[in-house]
Design a protein around this nucleic acid. Structure first.
Lengths: 196, 196
DNA sequence: TCGTTACCGTAACGTACGCTACGGTACGAG
DNA sequence: CTCGTACCGTAGCGTACGTTACGGTAACGA
């Protein structure tokens, strides 16, 4: 036996480097060499940790989803009432701050990559459906009187609004600033507080 | 003098080929060779028509914007009342049909390309702001009683919803089908019909 | 009809990519 | 301390990219 490595930690570091490069240089700049340089290692180490580039992307995508999921759990848990929980979950999924906007750029990059890669497309679809399901349950908790179909439509609408805010904030953070995103979300949520 | 070419037509054809490749193969598959093959010519002809790849992308982006703008004009003109005009403009900007979904994939591709290319980013921001301005005026026409700031917030919200529907329909057309998109838009527009 | 010239296809250049193979190196076991 | 092995950096392979240069070709004026 010889020296052992922390494989999980390496994968985590390389995924973080992948996000960083993707946010900064975009999809065309996401090369194994760039990821290796950002992680402070070589392409040899990257391809000893992941079988190929797609495996790296898949792991980075999964880890990103898990991270946002945990953040959503936290936001949901600390909220006082169901409406506040719904608002907290949606707000943290949007990208008001610069840090979140970087995450939104990563999200757009993965979305564009998914258009050419069926595996990434499956992941994207799965994860988005899970997010819709979470929002749907929160909508149901906030407004138990709504029909299931109505709650589902509301959830897909809210998720679309959030992802639209993310996409637009990527390229025009001035128009889609923190205040604007909060106002947009609160306006959409206002329909849940009063009877239609 | 010798044979003359229709430069504008060539540019139009190559831009159409660019959209087609971008929708089908995604951003990584958008190579000059693929565009040339789709257009039925060679890379030599492409680079005699455009100075370089970026010029081709910029032209394709501008033409796409002009096309969607004209379609929005048409939708707006045939509507009976301001609310109907607003609804028609937003619906045609969303992607209910398969044909529109292809356009949405192109839109996502350009968005991702804009994250790495400042020129494309400028175009994207400009065009989106113009779309927001159009929607803002339609909102004002539909609800003249709203404060300007309120109308602006409503417009940015509606645009975000539409683009979110587009982005999500790209990767999950089942969840974000024609009916769902219409319901989402109508629900958002319902707030404009009644006094808050 | 013929020469001129704008046009574009062909071929190849340099570069950077994903990926592989091999050799050196550092660590844990004995 | 020393051996053996798991690990990873180095170097380079083949490929495909954007771009360029040049020669052939087709159309227009005369």
């Amino acid at each position: 036996m010889a020296r052992r490595r922390d494989l999980a930690d390496q994968r985590r570091r390389l995924s973080a480097a992948t996000w960083s490069v993707l946010a900064e240089r975009g999809l065309p700049g996401l090369t194994l060499r760039a990821v290796a340089e950002r992680a402070g290692c070589t392409t040899g180490m990257v391809l000893h940790t992941f079988a190929d580039k797609q495996a790296l992307l898949v792991h980075a995508r999964e880890l990103l989803h898990r991270r946002t999921g945990l953040r959503a759990d936290a936001a949901q848990a600390t909220a006082a009432d169901p409406v506040a929980a719904l608002r907290a979950v949606l707000l943290q999924a949007a990208s008001p701050t610069e840090e979140k906007r970087e995450e939104a750029r990563v999200w757009v990059g993965f979305l564009a990559a998914a258009l050419a890669d069926p595996v990434l497309a499956d992941l994207h679809r799965d994860y988005n459906r899970r997010f819709v399901a979470r929002v749907r349950e929160l909508v149901h908790a906030a407004r138990p009187d709504l029909e299931p179909a109505e709650a589902a439509d509301t959830a897909t609408s809210l998720v679309a609004l959030v992802e639209g805010l993310n996409a637009l904030a990527c390229v025009d953070p001035e128009t889609y600033g923190e205040r604007t995103q909060q106002i947009a979300l609160d306006a959409a949520l206002a329909r849940l507080r009063v009877e239609p």
